[in-house]
């Protein structure tokens, strides 16, 4: 069984993040990730960075991970009402 906080730790350990939120029921997870590493990258490349951070766990333990990725700038902009 994988817990949302495990996934959060896996991501944070492998990718410098400003902010990570993970929710899930042990099989399906939703993650929100803000990282300076996403700057200048396409959405595909951003998701690939997260998948790389999770490595083999993505194949074996995590059935489904839905994610939203933001650069710190995009995240700051989003925070403004």
């Amino acid at each position: 069984m994988v817990y949302p906080q495990d996934i959060k730790a896996f991501i944070q350990n492998a990718l410098p993040c400003d902010h990570v939120e993970v929710q899930g029921d042990g099989h399906h997870f939703e993650a929100l990730i803000v990282s300076p590493e996403f700057r200048g990258k396409s959405m595909v490349q951003q998701h690939q960075l997260v998948y790389r951070a999770l490595g083999d766990r993505m194949r074996e333990e995590i059935h489904a991970l839905s994610m939203k990725t933001f650069t710190p700038e995009q995240w700051a902009e989003r925070g403004v009402p």
């Binding site: 595909v44 998701h47 998948y51 993505m58 489904a64 991970l65």
Partner: peptide, 23 residues
């Protein structure tokens, strides 16, 4: 180099998975 399914390709180019298509 994408570990999940579905995957969409248009004219041979990988476009993305479910989240990216939605966005």
């Amino acid at each position: 180099n994408w570990p999940t399914i579905p995957q969409l390709y248009v004219n041979g180019e990988f476009v993305g998975g479910s989240d990216i298509l939605t966005e």
